[in-house]
């Protein structure tokens, strides 16, 4: 299935960016994630697949502590970002999220102009010293998100006025603008049509040259197309984690095979 890849890019590093060990998540009394161990590599796209409610999005939200916003969620185990435990009490989630950016399922641009949407992150983190610098960051981010050519003449039009695919790329530009080290994407294409999906997938593959990218998807084809590593979740367990090619052609676990062949899901 390797031939489904859009492009094959060489990856220079193989270093571990995020190391998760024995991660458990409880929502109140329900045990949503059970003892997950995953390594996220730099320069790779890692895909999380599995049926709905399997815990893949929950795990994704652990990686930048978005679960903190849900009062009933409780996370145990260790998640190391560059060998630092992100759940250490000394860690400020605000700083963590600047390093680990996130793109959501539904395009959610702020009701502000396109420019202000992209400039939001750099502004709050104080990444630029002058207006010119900020302009530059906005331009590069929009270019990285392959949106620049479409919006360069209307940077001050509201971001909510763009089409769905453009909105999602705007959200990606917004996430990229804070220059994160890891980019988390929660089913970024599920609200998009096939053409917009293709554009975003192309973009994801380009982005991995700069960040470690983690993508949650319930489309197996998409996982196969864009990722190098795939993790299969089922009922809160990490069933199998390995090279994408191997997972799709030669799964070790019978559950993975049933899912991929469409028997469960």
């Amino acid at each position: 299935m390797n031939d489904m890849r859009i492009v094959e890019r060489l990856v220079s590093t193989n270093e571990i960016k995020i190391a998760a060990r024995d991660v458990n998540v409880h929502y109140g009394s329900s045990h949503a994630l059970k003892g997950v161990d995953v390594d996220i590599l730099n320069g790779h796209v890692t895909a999380f697949i599995g049926p709905s409610g399997c815990g893949k999005s929950t795990f994704l939200r652990c990686l930048n502590r978005m679960n903190d916003t849900i009062p009933s969620a409780k996370v145990t185990g260790s998640i190391l970002l560059d060998d630092e435990d992100i759940y250490d009490p000394k860690v400020d989630p605000v700083r963590l999220r600047a390093k680990v950016g996130m793109v959501f399922q539904k395009p959610n641009p702020f009701p502000k102009s396109i420019y202000d949407n992209v400039a939001y992150g750099p502004k709050i983190h104080g990444l630029t010293r002058s207006r010119a610098e900020l302009d530059e960051v906005v331009e590069t981010s929009l270019k990285k998100a392959a949106l620049w050519n479409e919006v360069k003449d209307r940077l001050h039009a509201p971001g909510t006025g763009l089409s769905g695919g453009q909105q999602q790329r705007l959200c990606i530009a917004r996430a990229v603008a804070t220059s994160p080290e890891v980019l988390l994407m929660d089913e970024p294409c599920s609200a998009l049509d096939p053409i917009a999906t293709a554009q975003v997938e192309e973009l994801i593959d380009e982005l991995r040259t700069q960040f470690a990218v983690v993508i949650v998807t319930h489309s197996m084809q998409q996982a196969a197309r864009v990722s190098q590593k795939t993790a299969f979740f089922h009922m809160g367990n990490l069933v199998e984690f390995g090279e994408t090619g191997q997972i799709f052609t030669n799964p070790h676990d019978p559950r993975t095979e049933s899912y991929i062949s469409g028997k469960i899901g």
């Binding site: 990856v11 220079s12 250490d88 000394k90 220059s179 040259t209």
Partner: peptide, 19 residues
């Protein structure tokens, strides 16, 4: 097919130290 190495070098600042 383009061949590229990883882009900007990531800023290695520790999460533990608050600026």
């Amino acid at each position: 097919m383009t061949e590229r190495t990883a882009g900007a070098t990531p800023r290695r600042t520790s999460l533990m130290q608050l600026d």
